[in-house]
Design a protein around this nucleic acid. Sequence first.
DNA 1: CTTTCGATCCGT
DNA 2: CGGATCGAAAGG
Length: 205
Amino acid sequence: MAKKRTPSFPKSLYPLLRADTVEAARALLGCVLWHETPQGVAAGRIVETEAYLLDDPACHASRGPTPRTAVMFGPPGRAYIYFIYGMYHCFNVVTRGKGTGEAVLIRALEPLEGLDLMAQRRKTENIRNFCNGPAKLVLALDIRKEQTGEDLRQGRLRLLAPGSYPGWNARKPPLIKVGPRIGISVAVDLPLRFYVADNPFVSKA
DNA sequence: CTTTCGATCCGT
DNA sequence: CGGATCGAAAGG
């Protein structure tokens, strides 16, 4: 009988989250976002990210800490989830050390586990529409705003190593493409969006 | 207190 | 391309 592997946070990721947000945005591609609720587990591979930097007017933390963005100024590896457009939420991974407000927005996942739950929550049978957008993946995994501040190395909401599920060859990593960020009105031209080339689950090619 | 507007999604 | 929908944050 095969030994069942417990999903685990990639040890090498934490120093990177603390050190450099752009490198973190690249390194997060391929990692798995995993959420366990009373209904079961839903998980997907991260295929699209965006970096939000301190000196960047599009970054929520760029004008100093507020009640909403306080967690961005805390330790790395925590969840920052915010409410947007009156009806949606977006999920970020906090980066850098205490006092520095930066984060990586997770924009798209390739669905891996809990496809039935995702279909229910997203009210569609089309797998491509489960997690191909920042608010869509929050709905598909049923992530709540109250989970802001949770440590993504352990607990119900986790970041897992790329090898945690089949379908990722660390020896032959896919091409990473770079482009401008989406949905912002300032600093539009900065090349801070990263995505896996030729992946059908990215929100925009 | 009032106003503005947004790191989006969906149907047309 | 416009409508839905509401809280955070900036301004008076």
